[in-house]
């Protein structure tokens, strides 16, 4: 027996998206080109019916502070609440966890040499919640359980793209040895190119973004040639969030993948925003 991997869903997670949803601004000219990327995601999820989502994301100072910053943190909780992230915005719905699958993944990761941080209490921020708000806009409760995996993209040294890919590959091995045929969707949250800080704020690199979108499905190793510092130089300081996509791609396994849908738009807030669904072929 093994978990069934239905595919990967990749999305940007800018806080302003949550604000636009709260205001009902999805059809406004500024936002429409971005939100138009999501109906195909919803259709795909309705057909693929995942039970659990493994979510690679980065915390923006809700759960983790610099007093103790894990490079990789895996949730093993029964529930994951959101809270006020400092702006007094509406709080996102709480997620249900899957502690059994979490501990199984943790066993595989530590057994594979990833000395991750294990979290039985873990608040999840907009980076985790927004992809679900976009994918399941009208639900009273989230239809999937989650296993959140937070990657440090705040405080250098950050893990390299190669290391994040290898982390994902270890998660894939955990799927293969899982006890039942749970249907799993892998989610990578973040990016694409953007920079919020410094005199270079507003920096975007559409060429690099397209390179990532073009290679993620069937040549993900092409994204592993850069160090994280090089990614920051190429894609902006927050463009390093692409490591969440890279880890998620690793978790899909090494076989070929087909692109179900892709959307790319500049700008959403300060960010080049992208949406992508890949399925194993």
């Amino acid at each position: 027996m093994s978990a069934q991997i239905i595919g990967g869903y990749f999305s940007s997670h800018v806080p302003g998206i949550g604000g636009a949803i709260a205001r009902g601004a999805q059809a406004e000219p500024y936002w429409k080109p971005f939100f138009d990327g999501y109906p195909p995601v919803r259709t795909w999820l309705a057909q693929a019916r995942p039970d659990v989502a493994i979510v690679f994301y980065n915390d923006h100072g809700l759960n983790f502070f610099l007093d103790a910053m894990p490079t990789f943190a895996v949730g093993a909780a029964a529930a994951y609440p959101n809270e006020d992230e400092g702006w007094g915005l509406p709080v996102y719905k709480t997620f249900q966890g899957d502690p059994g699958l979490s501990w199984h993944i943790i066993e595989e990761l530590v057994g594979s040499g990833f000395d991750i941080t294990m979290c039985q209490k873990m608040k999840v921020d907009h980076a985790l919640s927004i992809p679900f708000e976009l994918a399941y806009p009208d639900v009273a409760a989230w239809p999937v359980k989650i296993v959140p995996i937070a990657i440090n993209t705040v405080q250098y040294p950050l893990p390299s793209p190669q290391r994040c890919y290898d982390l994902g590959r270890a998660v894939h091995r955990a799927f293969q040895s899982w006890q039942d045929d749970t249907r799993v969707v892998v989610i990578g949250s973040g990016g694409l190119s953007h920079q919020l800080d410094g005199a270079r704020a507003g920096f975007i690199n559409a060429d690099y973004d397209r390179f990532c979108l073009d290679h993620l499905a069937n040549d993900p190793e092409a994204l592993l040639r850069h160090s994280t510092e090089e990614v920051a130089a190429i894609a902006g300081t927050q463009g390093v969030e692409i490591v969440n996509w890279i880890a998620a791609r690793g978790a899909l396994g090494q076989g070929p993948h087909a692109e179900v849908t892709r959307n790319y738009h500049i700008p959403i807030s300060n960010t080049a925003a992208a949406t992508l669904v890949l399925t194993p072929t």
Binding site: V154, Q155, Y156, P157, Q195, D197, G198, A199, R200, A201, E229, A232, A233, T237
Partner: peptide, 8 residues
């Protein structure tokens, strides 16, 4: 990186 400090 011009106009950038990586937070180390």
């Amino acid at each position: 990186i011009a106009g950038t400090l990586l937070f180390d």
